[in-house]
C-alpha cells in the first residue's frame, strides 16, 4: 500500500474517514497474489522436466528457449538465478510514453495497460530489475501514468450525483478499483439510501399517488 499512498491527494482524502486497508476488499498482498497468476515469458538457463501443477502444465524448460509461465513461477526461478524474465511489451519505454500521452490527452482511461499493471510492474521492479531495460525510465513513466490516472478517477468522482445508480468504470485497473471501492461504494450507498422513498417518511407523497409518479423528476424537487 505504501507505494500508492504517497501518490496523490486522492488517496489521502480516502484516508480521512477510516484506514484504507480496513475497508478494502482485497489486501495489497491478496491483489499481488491474484496478479501472480498472470503469464509472463521467461528464458530459462536450466533444463527441467515439465511441471504438471494444480494451476496448469508448464515447461519443459530448456536453456535459452523462451517459455510462458505464471508470474509467481517466473519470480521463484528468477530468485534462484535460474532464468531471466522478459518484461511484457507494455513495459517498454516507447510504449509507456505513448500510454502516458494518451492518458494525458483524454479524460477516458486508456485500455492499453493490463488490469494488474501496478502489481506486475512492482513485482518486476522488486525482483527482476536487471531484466528491465531502462528500468529507471520505465519506473518513472509508470508512476506518472498512475498519477494521471488517479487524477482522472478523482475528477470523474465529482460528476457523481443522486441520480447515479450504477457507474461504468471502463479500463480501471485492479489496484485502482480496490482504492476507490470503499469511497464509491459508500457514496453510492448513501445516495441510494437518501433516494429510496420508503426510507424517507414523507406523508404528502404517501397520501398522493400522482405525486409519487412525479418523483422520477430530478431529486432536488423533493427538498422544497
Amino acid at each position: 500500500m505504501k507505494m500508492l499512498l504517497k501518490s496523490s491527494s486522492f488517496s489521502s482524502f480516502l484516508m480521512a474517514g477510516q484506514s484504507v486497508s480496513a475497508l478494502s476488499l482485497f489486501s495489497a498482498e491478496e491483489l499481488e497474489f491474484i496478479a501472480e497468476d498472470e503469464t509472463i515469458e521467461i528464458i530459462p538457463n536450466l533444463r527441467m522436466e515439465p511441471l504438471n501443477l494444480l494451476c496448469g502444465d508448464f515447461g519443459p524448460f530448456f536453456p535459452q528457449i523462451p517459455t510462458q509461465v505464471p508470474l509467481w513461477l517466473a519470480v521463484a526461478l528468477k530468485k534462484r538465478g535460474k532464468c531471466t524474465i522478459r518484461p511484457p511489451e507494455w513495459m517498454a519505454v516507447e510504449k509507456l510514453t505513448q500510454v502516458l500521452e494518451a492518458e494525458r490527452d483524454s479524460q477516458e482511461m486508456s485500455e492499453q495497460l493490463p488490469f494488474h499493471y501496478v502489481e506486475i510492474s512492482r513485482l518486476l521492479f522488486d525482483l527482476a530489475r536487471d531484466d528491465i531495460p531502462d528500468v529507471y525510465m520505465v519506473r518513472s513513466l509508470i508512476e506518472d501514468i498512475r498519477d494521471v490516472r488517479f487524477h482522472k478517477v478523482e475528477t470523474d468522482l465529482e460528476a457523481f450525483n443522486g441520480r447515479t445508480v450504477a457507474v461504468k468504470i471502463k479500463n480501471l485497473s485492479a489496484m485502482e478499483v480496490n482504492i476507490v471501492r470503499p469511497f464509491i461504494g459508500r457514496a453510492l450507498q448513501a445516495f441510494y439510501k437518501h433516494d429510496s422513498p420508503e426510507l424517507i417518511p414523507d406523508p404528502e407523497r404517501v397520501s398522493d399517488r400522482r405525486q409519487q409518479v412525479a418523483t422520477t423528476a430530478p431529486r432536488r424537487q423533493l427538498r422544497r
Binding site: E36, L51, L73, K82
Partner: peptide, 18 residues
C-alpha cells in the same frame, strides 16, 4: 528429485491451499 522442482510443486500447492 531435484529440490528446485520440489519447491516449485510445493509453492503451487501452497497457493491452492491458501
Amino acid at each position: 528429485i531435484d529440490p528446485l522442482t520440489v519447491s516449485l510443486y510445493q509453492m503451487d500447492l501452497d497457493r491452492s491451499q491458501f
